[in-house]
């Protein structure tokens, strides 16, 4: 941080910590490096390795896994010769059928709609920036990603799967469905996709609308 440096030189080099408001002048980060706040330790900026191509590849993989994880049975329960199978959507559907529509909405948003929107909007923005396509709504999509991320709870859902496995094992035979393997891979891939995408860098590349210089 340099107090005497002129503010208008290049405002993009200047970042205020979101958690303590300390101003930092950040040099261009080498790939794989990140900058933390000198005052409170919060992450200021991260420059993931692999540029834009890596998050594009990871998000395409995540999209495919998302389709697979939803297209096949997730778990099968066998009890005295009878079988009951469920999918990810089935979990939310069961709540809806039991008269708990609000809870069904929460579950479907956190397990399907939220993660799907994050992956799709990430891909849309990444492809738009990577290939300099004048896509509509690019900026609003990018704004949405960080607001949507906390509501995608694939990892938490996976813990829920483990717990219900143990709970039901005493009552019935549990069989893992193919979707469960896709889902396990999806958690790893989508976590990698999220950490490979740094919205701040995408905003820097987008710049101000109409390609104006970064002056206020």
């Amino acid at each position: 941080m340099n107090q005497s440096a002129p503010l208008d030189a290049n405002p993009l080099e200047l970042i205020a910590c979101h958690e303590c408001d300390t101003l930092h002048r950040i040099p261009e980060l080498a790939p794989g490096r990140s900058a933390h706040c000198s005052c409170c330790g919060a992450l200021l900026l991260h420059n993931p390795k692999g540029g834009l191509d890596r998050p594009i590849a990871l998000n395409i993989a995540a999209l495919l896994l998302l389709v697979l994880a939803n297209a096949f049975p997730f778990m099968t329960l066998q009890i005295s010769g009878r079988e009951q199978t469920t999918t990810i959507i089935g979990a939310s559907q069961a709540l809806y059928e039991a008269g708990m529509a609000p809870l069904a909405v929460v579950v479907i948003i956190t397990t399907l709609i939220g993660p799907a929107l994050v992956v799709i909007s990430s891909l849309y923005v990444l492809l738009g920036v990577r290939f300099r396509l004048p896509l509509p709504m690019l900026r609003s999509m990018l704004s949405w990603i960080s607001h949507l991320q906390p509501w995608g709870m694939l990892d938490v859902f996976m813990l829920g799967v483990l717990v219900s496995f143990v709970k039901l094992a005493g009552m019935a035979d549990m069989v893992m469905g193919p979707a469960l393997y896709a889902f396990a891979a999806l958690i790893v891939i989508s976590a990698a996709a999220m950490s490979a995408l740094e919205p701040h860098l995408l905003w820097q590349r987008l710049g101000l609308p109409g390609g104006q210089p970064h002056a206020r």
């Binding site: 329960l77 009951q84 469920t86 979990a91 069961a94 809870l103 929460v106």
Partner: peptide, 13 residues
């Protein structure tokens, strides 16, 4: 919440 949703979906025999 997910545990309840999954168990309610599976245990309907």
């Amino acid at each position: 919440v997910f545990v309840v949703a999954l168990m309610a979906a599976l245990v309907q025999v």
